[in-house]
Design a protein around this nucleic acid. Structure first.
Lengths: 257, 257
DNA sequence: TCTTATTTGTTCGTATGTATT
DNA sequence: GAATACATACGAACAAATAAG
């Protein structure tokens, strides 16, 4: 067994060089890389090899390529989503998003809309309802400086949504969870499943990333005090631009259950 | 603007077909795909196009390609790492790993070793020590059915490690945290930062995945009751084969601070 | 050990298609 | 319409890892 590093493929070496140039600011955020024919001449390789090298940077989220225009360096602020346990669930919500983005000097914004859809198999199981039964879904889209950074869709059974009065875009002070609490179904138990997968083409289009570029998917289930699920939220966000933070304090031994 | 879906590239269509065949069991886990020349003839495309299609499946973690041998279908059980807040930090540790793997019908195993290393910039900052000062690192490697699934390295200052007596591989009942508690430095506050990034070549080699295939990196900081950091653990695991679960229960309003 | 066949990895030159300016 | 830029694809060639003899 030989510990000497095998010679790296040209496309990988060129990707390294370009990555380093971006890191050092030779190509500033928002500015284009030299065109493929130019890079092809500079490194004395075929344009196909340059295309593959740039493909590496694309899949890392470092550049955004637009056909007919060029490859542009992204500015990728890493946004931290803090889920502090002892302060309750809403800390990971909209208010915290605002604070975090302003801390980074970015302008937070979002859109919201409400629809009715039949329950998918997965959502039906999580909400403990029949497949195909009617759900109310609140779709939110988050932006940082006009750039899309997160998809968040919350599903509730139509029945519960109507009882709690959250079938309109404006859910009033405290949001959906406060309205649920008003009718005695306030969520108390929370489960959050985090996975990492390639973006679907629809997600990629909205988030302006490559299909198959890694995204975080968070499935957030809120249940009431009788442990009945009341709402499911699916978050999808580009993997390279988020950090998920969880913090908590252990109870002293005696108080644990 | 034209809403008609552009025709998909051939390599992507072929990747879809192969992915579907794997899903349907046409190619069972552990068995090889047909060779590239064979697929090239079947789909009547060049071998370069097949190579690119298989590359898509590689980056998804669906197949493992070994040069000179072929492309083998992976068996990819999704392992859930549960971090239940109310039961304390150790629920995400080794015992929980054992239980989860047996639940999946897999055989859990791990290795452990202890080293001394100088503090890197990042670790030094998290542990609040000087860069380059001596640390004790406990390296653990987790396997499922002999397949590597996780890297976990825990760093402590040498001083503290010696006081607590955790400079050997065997740390005794309850593990490192119990020994820290014995000397009055038991961790109480926990912070966990989850990010998603491409595997480094070293990680890829150990985890038997592609370089740049997405991995979860978890930075876990444990602090004592005076909020002094006592240990930092870095976990690295293949993104496609883990699910991170967090669950908790909200305290009633009155008890929140 | 050496040889040969098989299999994947990379690269080139060339060509064609699509999106933008 | 023309020029520019990126996307995909092919055939050919060679390199590197593996397996069989």
């Amino acid at each position: 067994m030989n510990q000497i590093e095998a010679p790296r493929p040209r496309f990988a070496q060129i990707a390294d060089i370009l990555r380093d140039r971006i890191r050092r600011g030779v190509h500033a955020p928002g500015s284009p890389l030299p065109s493929e024919p130019e890079l092809s001449r500079e490194f004395d390789v075929s344009r196909v090899t340059i295309n593959r090298a740039v493909g590496v940077l694309r899949s890392e989220g470092l550049v955004q390529v637009r056909r007919g225009r060029g490859a542009f360096v992204r500015s990728v602020p890493v946004i931290t989503r803090v889920a502090t346990r002892r302060h309750g669930a809403r800390d990971a919500g909209r208010g915290a998003y605002d604070v975090e983005l302003r801390r980074l000097g970015l302008d937070p914004s979002w859109t919201a809309s409400v629809e009715r859809v039949p329950a998918s198999e997965q959502t039906a199981e999580l909400l403990n309802v029949e497949v195909g039964c009617e759900l109310v879904v609140r779709r939110r889209r988050y932006f940082a400086n006009e750039l899309p950074v997160q998809i968040a869709d919350t599903y509730l059974s139509s029945e519960l949504a109507e009882k709690a009065g959250v079938t309109e875009e404006n859910t009033g002070p405290g949001g959906t969870y406060s309205r649920l609490a008003d009718v005695g179904r306030g969520p108390v138990h929370f489960t959050e499943d985090v996975t990492c997968r390639g973006a679907t083409s629809g997600e990629a289009r909205f988030l302006e990333i490559e299909p198959n570029q890694p995204v975080f998917e968070i499935l957030f289930v809120a249940s009431d005090k009788e442990n009945r699920p009341v709402a499911v939220t699916r978050h999808v966000m580009p993997g390279h631009q988020w950090r998920l933070r969880y913090d908590w304090t252990d109870e002293p031994e005696g108080q644990t259950e």
